[in-house]
């Protein structure tokens, strides 16, 4: 079997692999990722759902809350323990998590995600020009 245009193909493959593996090379030898320390609410120990659930699923929960509150007009959420919350980012979540910069942004920045919640919703710290 003969490889046609072998030189070009192999050069191309090497360039591709180089680009593909660049992030690994860039991070090699650096300290392992440490989860950021979040500022937790002082007066409240329990969130709407368990810590693990909130950590991995808060975005889906907020998505559902939005549709229920806005589109279905059902504004109260009864959690698995029977406790009732109003489904509202500004009136419920941010009443305990009173600091977006010390809570939301920490993980979002690390994960390099910029959810557009705050384009409309008012962060608890207030807005500055």
């Amino acid at each position: 079997m003969k490889l046609y245009n072998g030189g070009k193909i192999i050069t191309g493959l090497v360039i591709f692999l180089g680009i593909f593996l660049a992030p690994l090379a860039y991070n090699a030898g650096k300290a392992a990722y440490i989860q950021p320390k979040l500022k937790m609410p002082e007066n409240e120990k329990e969130c709407v759902e368990s810590k693990e659930f909130m950590r991995t699923k808060h975005m889906q929960l907020l998505d559902q809350w939005r549709d229920w509150a806005l589109r279905d007009g059902q504004r109260m959420y009864v959690n698995s323990k029977g406790k009732v919350f109003e489904m509202s980012l500004q009136k419920t979540c941010m009443k305990c998590h009173t600091n977006k910069a010390e809570f939301c942004d920490k993980c979002h920045n690390d994960a390099s995600v910029t959810p557009y919640c705050w384009d409309c919703h008012v962060q608890p710290e207030g807005l500055k020009k």
Binding site: K57, Q60, D72, Q74, Y77, V78
Partner: peptide
């Protein structure tokens, strides 16, 4: 995506 909210949760009006 279907199974998101915490198990045993419910919604209602104020």
């Amino acid at each position: 995506a279907l199974a998101v909210s915490g198990a045993g949760s419910a919604i209602r009006d104020d």
